[in-house]
């Protein structure tokens, strides 16, 4: 039972992990991008449609990444180049992303013969749990660690790679400096604008893959409108919970994944709590986490100082 619960929590946390990692990259570049929900929605649609048409998992992933990066590009043009307010631009991206995603989904559903869209057999098979010889057959540990679909492993690899990139490489030092104090980075000869575009778009792409998870896996390969369903917002909060560190995001996603599926594991006969309460739980905990973390004192675990402020070189 506990193993089943944990496995379910990992699965429920995976789209959160991608969203959180993408947003970490955005905020490290100094941009509070509230468009995570929108970028995930774009990724969900693109991933699903390309998977539906080509029946190829890798192409679907690439399409999801590209769609998320495209959403991020809109945001980057607005905030990096045109200096638009970051909060408003991010919210706009969310509304736009959800709207476009549902519109395209609706169009395809209308064209289909059965009135529903379901991913074909081959791609569904590719997305099934990866069976690793020996390891997957271990008792308990096999199920707990080696029984997942490719998204899960991809997410954890992404987290580790991002952590290495940010904290162990020159490129990572540069982008952290850009997020903290773009003027200092600029004076050190770093191409601030270029780095911002690159990191914001890469972050958007990662969010897009998280969206593809919700579109292609969560509902068993059947297209459903609003499939992201607010996960993008939890991801924005998880960034704070993870104190802007990719590896910590893995644990944060696991915890919030657990909250998402708690309702299926509480015995209703003993504790009569309505399902609606459990649906609300992740958001309630998000609010509590935000309050708790805002009291944190350490400066290393704080939001990058330049986050939310657009950089203009000649400003006094």
């Amino acid at each position: 039972m506990i193993v089943k619960f944990l496995v379910a929590a990992v699965l429920a946390g995976t789209p959160l992990l991608f969203g959180t990692l993408g947003e970490i990259l955005n905020e490290r570049a100094g941009h509070l991008n509230l468009g995570v929900e929108g970028m995930m929605s774009l990724g969900a649609t693109a991933g699903f449609i390309v998977g539906y048409k080509t029946d190829n998992f890798v192409l679907a992933l690439l399409a999801a990444f590209a769609a998320g990066a495209f959403g991020a590009l809109i945001y980057a043009v607005l905030t990096v180049m045109l200096m638009a307010n970051q909060n408003v631009s991010g919210l706009t991206l969310t509304i736009f992303g959800i709207g476009l995603s549902n519109f395209i989904g609706f169009y395809y559903v209308g064209k289909s013969a059965e009135g529903t869209l379901k991913l074909p057999e081959r791609i569904t098979a590719q997305m099934r749990s990866v069976h690793i010889p020996v390891l997957s057959d271990l008792p308990v540990a096999g199920e707990l660690f080696f029984s997942y679909n490719p998204f899960v492993y991809l997410g954890i690899i992404t987290a580790v790679v991002l952590g290495f990139y940010l904290f162990r490489t020159n490129a990572g030092l540069n982008i952290r400096a850009v997020g903290e104090n773009p003027a200092a980075a600029d004076a050190a000869g770093i191409h601030v604008t270029k780095l911002k575009y690159l990191n914001i778009m890469a972050g958007g792409g990662i969010c897009g893959i998280g969206g593809a998870y919700t579109g292609m896996i969560t509902n068993g390969g059947v297209w459903i409108s609003d499939c992201v369903g607010g996960l993008g917002w939890i991801a924005v909060a998880l960034v704070i919970f993870a104190s802007w560190k990719p590896v910590k995001a893995v644990f944060g996603s696991l915890v919030f994944g657990a909250f998402r599926i708690l309702k299926y594991y509480v015995v209703k006969d003993i504790i009569p709590i309505p399902d609606a309460f459990f649906d609300m739980l992740p958001f309630l905990v998000t609010a509590l986490v935000l309050v708790a973390t805002s009291m944190r004192q350490s400066r290393e675990n704080n939001q990058p100082a330049g986050c939310g402020i657009n950089y203009f070189r000649e400003e006094r």
Binding site: N170, L173, A177, N302, A305
Partner: peptide, 27 residues
């Protein structure tokens, strides 16, 4: 150029500020 308003990243240590934008290997 040493600017009137310091161009330093507050949460980084002295070393990271010095090598910022340079070519030396971070590790």
């Amino acid at each position: 150029m040493i600017h009137q308003h310091f161009k330093l990243v507050e949460v980084h240590n002295a070393m990271d500020n010095i090598i910022l934008g340079g070519k030396e290997k971070y590790f």
